[in-house]
Amino acid sequence: MGMDGILALAGANLVSPIILSFLLGLVAALVRSDLSFPEAVAKGLSLYLLFAIGFKGGAGVAAHGVDALLVAALFAGVILSILLPFIAFAMLRFLTRVPVIDAAAVAGHYGSISIVTFVAASSLLAGRGIPAESYMIAVAAAMEAPAILSALWLAARRGGTAERVGAELWREILINGSIILLLGAFAIGWFTGEAGLAEIRSFIVDPFKGVLCLFLLDMGLVAGRGLRSSRGVLSLGAVIFGIVMPLVGATLSLAAGLALGLSFGGVVLLMVLGASASYIAVPAAMRVALPEANPALSLTLALGVTFPFNLTLGIPLYLLLAGAVTGN
């Protein structure tokens, strides 16, 4: 596909209701509109999305069966999540002057994943009729936490004062609400299969995209507010990091996906996971374990720079790259 094709795909992606909703939120926040979602509504939308995506993934596995690739893909996801923070840390130290402790905290965010970026990519694939392994949602869940370990190791090793990770923090990380709901819904979907999905399809399939639009509208508002209030937090080097790091993560994940022998769609989703940065699970863990790290830096980078980049340009780019390499 030539440059025209890339632009056409990026353009088509940009005018989807999902992306436009995000942009609406972003613009509303930047012009200081009072448009806002109450915390409970945002949380409710997020619970719905986690339940629906988990359930659909489980039902997909029930319909298509599990192959040996599942375990290999989970393993690859964990390795990527552990490895990516080290690259992120080195890049940040090279590109910016942020202190070690901040670099370690940001690195942790970039090793972990953003589930809503994954959902947006899944929607794009589904819209274009590209199948992907249903168990990629389990890979997403497996990639949430390992990066936290790397970040804490980096902080401790490089002179920071990371809180010792006690049993309580581990419990909070491993059984945090998002992971339990995602994996629990996945298990229910797998157990009840197509019949179970048919029973609740009208609730979790048909309205899914509409809810996703509202959620992205809220994400746009939060990202815009973060960008507005954190002028001076992001240096040019940090912004470059926020755009280059996802490309590095996606490229490594492309190599991993090809080595595993995932399908075209599966490779794209693994790239999206490698490229995305956490803004739910990791921020909370970092606040507990690395309290001296500046939370505005990590969140503004993950939500204000990398998330919009992935959503608008990144996902179509990963789709094209994977297509070019796999011949699709």
Binding site: S36, F37, P38, E39, A42, K43, S46, D218, L221, V222, R225, S229, S230, V233, Y279, I280, A281, P283, A284, M286, R287, N294, P295, A296, L299
Partner: peptide, 16 residues
């Protein structure tokens, strides 16, 4: 000292 925060629209607990 650590900047502004708002609970509106937040999904995670980290910012609150």
């Amino acid at each position: 000292r650590s900047g502004q925060w708002s609970r509106e629209g937040q999904v995670g607990r980290a910012g609150g």
